[in-house]
């Protein structure tokens, strides 16, 4: 197995005080290095992280998930011995086994980036409406097609040091997922998808993005692609 102490788990956190401590605890059972970026939460998220084994970074104001990811990655890059960054959602929808598996794939195949996909496994328990929308988003996006991705909006990603230091997320809000894919398509890095299972608990479903937010994402992306 690949040495997990060279991997840093980055978790952007915004108002997740009910689950974040448990998510960190589960992850810490395998990964010794975890950094949680509290994105200016108004609940007790900060205290929950403080009491956990994770490194705590606190945004003084709420900036958005994309900004929190970038902050966590910047912090991880400054840590000695860091070779891999693993991005992870705070709501408990990702499984630690999948992260280990993806890290293995990245290390074994000498890949720069491994992206989690909900759709490589046959049976995944994804609500059908979400499946249709996500598949459509992946199919419509020219960059996703170029990389032959099946799932463009999965929060579980493994990046090696090279990929992580090249990545510059400028989309503070939720459009960062598309931005990352667009960056990867341009970058020429070695990329692969790996099957993951997403746990759709009632909590993560309630927390997940509403589909109408897709309109905002499309708008942000289209303005940006015109040369910002």
């Amino acid at each position: 197995m690949h040495d997990v102490s060279t991997a840093w788990i980055v978790i952007p956190v915004f108002n997740e005080d009910r689950v974040i401590a448990q998510v960190v605890e589960e992850t810490a059972a395998v990964f010794p290095n975890i950094v949680c970026v509290d994105d200016g939460s108004s609940d007790n998220t900060e205290e929950q992280i403080y009491g956990s084994k994770a490194h705590l970074i606190k945004h003084p104001i709420n900036l958005g998930q994309g900004a929190a990811l970038q902050t966590g990655i910047a912090y991880a890059l400054a840590q000695p011995g860091m070779k891999y960054v693993i991005t992870f959602d705070a709501d408990g929808q990702h499984r630690v086994e999948d992260a280990i598996n993806m890290l293995e794939i990245a290390a074994a195949g000498d890949l720069d980036v491994v992206l989690g996909s909900r759709f490589l496994n046959a049976n995944t328990g994804i609500p059908w409406i979400k499946r249709v929308v996500l598949r459509t988003a992946a199919a419509l996006s020219p960059t996703s097609r170029k990389l032959k991705l099946t799932d463009a909006h999965n929060g579980l990603r493994v990046m090696n040091r090279k990929a992580a230091s090249m990545l510059q997320i400028t989309m503070n809000g939720m459009a960062h997922a598309s931005e990352i894919v667009a960056f990867l398509a341009r970058s020429g890095l070695r990329i692969q998808e790996a099957p993951v299972t997403v746990r759709y608990t009632d909590y993560s479903k309630a927390k997940g993005q509403s589909l109408i937010n897709g309109v905002n994402i499309l708008f942000d992306i289209s303005i940006r692609q015109r040369g910002m």
Binding site: I57, H59, Q70
Partner: peptide, 9 residues
Amino acid sequence: ARTIAIRDA
């Protein structure tokens, strides 16, 4: 904000 957050952290 990122600079401040990382320095504090």
